[in-house]
Design a protein around this nucleic acid. Structure first.
Ligand SMILES: [Mn+2]
Ligand SMILES: [Mn+2]
Ligand SMILES: [Zn+2]
Ligand SMILES: [Zn+2]
Lengths: 144, 144
DNA sequence: ATTGAAAATGAGAATCATTCTCAGGTGGGA
DNA sequence: TCCCACCTGAGAATGATTCTCATTTTCAAT
């Protein structure tokens, strides 16, 4: 659970400084196993440190993404959501009605990427599979 | 090539009016077999009709998307790209260096969606698979 | 422990794609 | 032809993210 050390070491290994703000953001991000957007993360972080700035949240997210510790997802919304990079990759379904996000694994997808890479001589660094539609719950209640 | 009729009929079938602006946008969109962003489409449309407004381009794109004639893609950029809905689905790879887009088919992906739908009772309406990385060309030239 | 240069921060301005507002224009059924 | 609900153009507004810059803070070297 408290694997902050790994994050911190990674940051230092890349030559980045360990600030109070970064420590806090890392803690919140790793505690939460959700898909947070910048604003939500900002609110949670403020609950601990009133003085932190939104720009710092964005800067830290982009830094963590750069070193591979977090992933950025476009879950259908106009803004981004972030989550700690999982050990095994997974993908997302979002319900257009209630916004619920369902995660799922799909090993086939990496094969697709691998075959394409081989055929076209590409170096694929990111694979995003995103489904959307109507979740089981919303198909009954209709316009929940 | 000139399948505008299908587009026009679809629009009318949905009760939308056929305006000069919509006809023109449809023509440009269907002629181009590229992934146009709103601004580029706007420029091309202006070349034929100086008076058209950007808002109309956006409104028409969203309308065409709604009736299923065009697809919107997030190809890694901060803005959207649009293309005529293809007969058979395909997906995209974008080179982070030069921006080149490579299309590819991957029937397996629909199976993944089908299995998930069955397992979770979902109704999937959109499937987006997006890869990014470095294209063959850029791997040599490096920072093209 | 002290120092100093480089890196990071907070506040708010700036950016940029997209949407909205609203007054005037127009398609197409009657 | 007439009418009016639907469209349009222009520009303001929005909202997420990035940038600017003056002020801290980190941390490696004293
Ligand atoms: Mn996830
Ligand atoms: Mn395409
Ligand atoms: Zn739902
Ligand atoms: Zn390239």
């Amino acid at each position: 659970m408290n694997d902050c050390n790994h994050w911190i070491e990674t940051l230092q290994a890349h030559g980045y400084r360990l600030t109070r703000q970064r420590r806090l953001i890392i803690k919140i991000l790793e505690e939460s196993h959700e898909h947070l957007d910048a604003e939500t993360l900002y609110d949670r972080v403020r609950a601990c440190d009133e003085s932190i700035g939104l720009a710092t949240v964005y800067r830290t997210l982009s830094l963590l993404k750069q070193v591979g510790l977090v992933e950025e997802h476009r879950l259908g919304a106009e803004h981004s959501h972030f989550e700690a990079t999982p050990e095994t990759p997974h993908y997302h379904f979002t319900c257009r009605h209630c916004g619920r996000v369902i995660e799922f694994a799909a090993p086939e997808v990496l094969n697709v990427a691998r075959e394409l890479s081989a055929r076209e001589g590409l170096h694929v660094t990111d694979v995003h599979l995103f489904l959307s539609g109507c979740c089981a719950r919303c198909q009954k209640g209709e316009t929940e």
